[in-house]
Amino acid sequence: MYPNQRWGCTRVSSKTTRIGERFLDITPNSAKDNLGYVIIGIPVALLVVFFLIPTLYLFATTFFPREGSGYYQIGFTLEHYARLFDSPIYGRYLWTTLELAAVTTVISVVLGYPIAYWLARVESPALKRGLLLMIVATMWITVIIRAYAIQVVLAGDGILNSLLLDFRLISEPITSSTGYIPTIVGMVYGFLPFAILTIYTSIANINPKLEEASRNLGASRLQTIRWVVLPLSKNGIAGATALVFILAIGSYVVPMLLGNPSEWTLPVIITEQVNEQMNVPFGAVLSAVLTALTIFFFLIAVKVLGLGSDQLIGDTPEGETDGQ
């Protein structure tokens, strides 16, 4: 009934063509056309003015020579790029950024999957709404407050360590208010909802009767998830992975507030270069690297997911509801 990964592309795109042709037939109306241009024109204009031009300017800035006063002037130099490749420390920061993002992504997707599955299969609509609200609600609190809250919980004399010490489960504090673990906790806390919601959508599209069919054919719950649910939600998993990873590369507040300097990511260093070192062109170079990195992983995601073809929607909805 529905296009599946293998055969969907041709079928859907042929349908698209047909709709397109029909569209051409009925809209030689110029008033309608103009309205369409206006509706598309406003966001395009906004993007050009506030995104495309600044981005190009940022890229240009990477070649501007720095002035003695700390600012820069129009000109051309490659010294900032030379500094990037000369000093091994920036490679370290780049690696830290990617590592934190990768660890965050794996934990978010692994933790998020069972929650998303449960959420998709909760029968009571009221409970489902409540749970979804709770997941979204974590995003209502600003990330700075969340970061400080995590500090309070994880500090050496914080709630977690006190409790564990009181129950004699540990003999000395196992976490501190800043460091690798608090940074990962903070980032997972921030990106888990994105992972859950992305995977949830894809699992909710799987006909629950498929799981019943699997159980009926002798599969245990785990076998059913392994052979039916996981393969059918792989687009959701891939989407969540790409989304969380791309978002995590750009993490700034959490590594700055919860990390020690060894957890500082590129965005933190960029801020430091611009605000503290007054080196705007070098900040621009690091920004360009970060942007290039994001684009690179985005393109990988596009390739893996087949985004841009017809699969943007997520997983194929399978089977009709049977009116029960």
Binding site: Y2, N4, Q5, N207, K209, L210, E212, A213, S214, R215, N216, L217, G218, A219, S220, Q223, W227, V228, P231, L232, T316, E318, G319, E320, T321, D322, Q324
Partner: peptide
């Protein structure tokens, strides 16, 4: 899964990511 009872569903519920042969042999696989 322990009942030895087969079922045919109204919504058919064939596994869309498996071939016909894989669908039929699913019970033997698990």
């Amino acid at each position: 899964n322990k009942r030895d009872i087969g079922m045919v569903f109204q919504s058919i519920a064939l596994f869309p990511h498996m071939t016909v042969a894989e669908n039929i042999s699913y019970g033997m696989k698990v």
